[in-house]
Design a protein around this nucleic acid. Structure first.
Length: 288
DNA sequence: CTTGGGTCCTGTGCGC
DNA sequence: TGCGCACAGGACCCAA
């Protein structure tokens, strides 16, 4: 689930909940996630005040008052679960049903000085956390090679065209390459290509001119829409009715194999293929 | 340098 | 019901 819109939604929730708060207690329940956690991780976090919460690509950046940044990635299955001092939990990143069975995947538990609890839950443990001095963040191994932010105004057709130039892989695979553009995952790569009317099989280097203009607009639009939807369903979730949601009700091709293309004029079946080991969903009629 | 494939890990859903 | 298999939102690492 966590692509840019989901991470941004989580960022906003964490910012609202944690900014200005002191981390009164930190429980670390494993020595490692995807990578080993740094030495004295919990100890170094305890007593720190959260200044703000930022985001770069799919990484969360929790800025601390000692000049360090808590760098976090949700991987495939990571989420942040917020729990009120009294009352039901609120999940950022995914709805939660059947509690209890899941608790063993609460790897890091932060308790703020106002009693709110933030649990980092990640069954598959593809997520990661690290503590790095702010001035060394840009040079961090996982950060230094990241491409442009898709919602940055500086990310325009020219910027994308430059990065696709000469690329022999498919455009779908290129969009998943975080050196080309960050934040796009398997869902939004499929959705953006559908909106742009571009075949996922098309060679990246041939996406130029009008096509790259269209693709950039589609990427920005789909991410914006998803962030807007994430925000609204998150508010809905506070009332805990259990609707399964977010943006998934609005997928036009993702996970819709065999279903009718949403285009009124088309209605052909959505197809699935595998590229770079990942499923791609597309309409062969609408996407060229 | 680029590119493709294997890999990490657990959970879920499906066919039989 | 149980079992085995395919597949799942990511991205690093290494061989070619």
């Amino acid at each position: 689930m966590p692509e840019l819109p989901e991470v941004e939604t989580v960022r906003r929730g964490l910012e609202q909940r944690l900014a200005g708060r002191v981390l009164a207690r930190v429980d670390q329940r494993r020595a490692d996630l995807r990578f080993p956690l740094p030495r004295d991780f919990a100890k170094r976090l305890t007593g720190r005040r959260v200044v703000s919460v930022g985001r770069r690509a799919k990484y969360l950046l929790v800025n601390l008052d000692d000049g360090n940044v808590l760098l976090a990635h949700l991987g495939m299955s990571g989420r942040m679960v917020l729990e009120k001092p009294k009352g039901g939990p609120q999940t950022l990143g995914k709805f939660h049903h059947d509690r209890g069975k899941r608790d063993r995947h609460d790897h890091i538990v932060l308790t703020a000085d106002d009693g709110w609890v933030v649990k980092f839950n990640d069954p598959r443990r593809f997520g990661m956390m690290d503590l790095v001095p702010a001035e060394r963040l840009a040079g961090h191994k996982l950060i230094k090679n990241l491409g442009p932010e898709p919602l940055d105004p500086a990310f325009d057709a020219q910027a994308l065209a430059l990065r696709l130039k000469g690329k022999k892989t498919s455009i779908k695979t290129a969009l998943l390459d975080q050196r080309v553009v960050v934040g796009i995952g398997n869902i939004y790569a499929c959705e953006a290509l559908f909106r742009a009317g571009i075949s996922p099989k098309r060679l990246a280097r041939t996406v130029q001119g009008a096509r790259v203009e269209k693709l950039v607009a589609a990427i920005k639009a789909v991410l914006d829409d998803a962030i807007a939807a994430g925000g609204s369903t998150l508010r809905d979730y506070v009332q805990a009715s259990g609707e399964l949601g977010y943006f998934q009700h609005r997928f036009q091709v993702y996970d819709r194999e065999g279903k009718a293309c949403v285009s009124r004029a088309c209605r052909k079946k959505v197809r699935r293929l595998v590229q770079g080991g990942r499923s791609t969903f597309y309409c062969a009629n609408c996407q060229r």
